[in-house]
Amino acid sequence: MNQESTESIEEKENIQEENVSENQQPEISVEEQLQDELAKEKDKFLRLFAEFENYKKRTSKERIDLFKTANQEVLQAMLPVLDDFDRAWSQISKSEDEALVKGIQLIQEKLKSTLVSKGLEEVEVKTGDAFDADFAEAITQIPAPSEDLKGKIVDVIEKGYKLGDKIIRFPKVVIGN
């Protein structure tokens, strides 16, 4: 009886241990499962939030770029008028009539300041500068008047303009060969 009772006691203890461990495992499993689900949902939320923040930044940047270049069409239409005004100014400035010269100069300055206030800037190229195809358009090549003008700008035919950082009309130049 001693041996049988010891075996039955051990069996009962083993059964109790199994029951206790079985009871604890589902609780831990459920808790771990809930923690995993919570972690997954947090990760999903953070990714969605980050994606939304990126969307807001991207649309804000696009909106700012649109406002910067919204006047581009109108300003491009005004460039020939500005060119004509510059050509007329070169002739009118030779006039003897001081009132005419002063009046035209005031109008020209007002036109230029208005266009500059809308973001228009002149692309700076001068005679003697090295030719750079990224910032100027070569119309033709002529024999260089001197050795130091070979591969450089000999004459500027038409001014170039940019709106913000974007060139809307390249300057047209003649290059020495």
Results as ranks from 00 to 15, higher is better:
Lys152Tyr: 11
Ala77Gln: 14
Ala130Trp: 02
Lys162Pro: 08
Thr127Ala: 09
Lys112Arg: 10
Leu115Ile: 06
Ile139Asn: 01
Gln25Ala: 12
Gly103Thr: 15
Asn2Ala: 10
Asp165Gly: 09
Glu147Arg: 02
Leu106Gln: 09
Glu10His: 07
Glu122Met: 08
Ser90Leu: 05
Ala99Trp: 00
Ser90Lys: 11
Glu98Met: 08
Ile9Tyr: 12
Ser21Tyr: 10
Asp148Gln: 08
Lys118Phe: 15
Glu37Cys: 04
Glu41Tyr: 13
Asp148Lys: 07
Gln108Trp: 05
Ala144Arg: 01
Gln105Thr: 11
Gln76Pro: 00
Gln25Cys: 02
Ile139Met: 00
Gln3Trp: 03
Phe49Tyr: 13
Lys94Glu: 07
Ile167Pro: 06
Ile142His: 02
Gln105Ala: 15
Ile139Gln: 01
Leu38Arg: 12
Glu122His: 01
Ala50Ile: 04
Val125Gln: 03
Gln105Ile: 02
Phe170Thr: 08
Pro171Leu: 08
Thr140Met: 02
Glu37Tyr: 09
Asn19Arg: 12
Asp43Arg: 10
Glu11Val: 02
Asp36Phe: 13
Arg63His: 10
Pro145Arg: 06
Glu18Met: 06
Gln72Pro: 00
Ala39Thr: 15
Asp84Ser: 15
Gln35Asp: 13
Trp89Glu: 03
Lys162Gln: 08
Ser90His: 11
Met1Ala: 15
Met78Trp: 07
Lys56Glu: 13
Ser93Gln: 03
Ile142Leu: 03
Ile9Asn: 12
Ile64Gly: 01
Phe85Asn: 09
Ser90Arg: 07
Leu106Lys: 07
Gln24His: 05
Ile157Met: 12
Asp155Gly: 11
Leu66Lys: 14
Glu13Gly: 04
Ile167Ser: 08
Ile92Asn: 04
Ile175Ala: 01
Leu100Ile: 11
Val81Thr: 05
Ile167Ala: 06
Glu122Asp: 03
Ser117Gln: 07
Leu163Asp: 04
Lys150Leu: 08
Leu111Lys: 00
Lys40Ser: 15
Ser8Asp: 09
Ser8Pro: 00
Asp83Thr: 14
Glu18Leu: 07
Leu120Pro: 08
Gly128Lys: 00
Pro80Gln: 09
Pro80Phe: 09
Ala130Arg: 03
Lys159Cys: 05
Gly119Lys: 05
Asp86Gln: 12
Pro143Asp: 09
Arg169Pro: 09
Glu124Asn: 13
Asp43Ile: 05
Lys12Arg: 04
Val116Ala: 02
Lys150Asn: 07
Leu120Ser: 09
Val81Lys: 00
Phe49Pro: 02
Asn2Tyr: 09
Arg47Ala: 15
Val30His: 06
Glu96Pro: 02
Leu82Thr: 08
Asn177Gln: 00
Gln76Gly: 06
Val154Pro: 01
Arg58His: 07
Asp43His: 15
Glu158Ser: 12
Leu115Glu: 01
Trp89Arg: 02
Lys110Cys: 04
Lys159Gln: 10
Gln72Asn: 01
Ser29Leu: 10
Asn71Met: 11
Ser29His: 09
Glu121Ala: 12
Ala138Arg: 01
Asn19Gln: 15
Ala136Cys: 05
Leu66Met: 13
Pro26Asp: 10
Ile15Lys: 07
Leu115Tyr: 06
Gln72Ser: 10
Lys40Val: 13
Lys162Thr: 07
Asp134Asn: 04
Asn23His: 13
Gln72Ile: 07
Val30Gln: 03
Tyr161Glu: 01
Ile175Met: 01
Thr6Ile: 13
Ser95His: 03
Lys112His: 01
Ile64Cys: 00
Gly103Pro: 00
Glu62Met: 12
Glu10Val: 11
Pro145Ser: 11
Asp65Ser: 06
Pro26Ser: 11
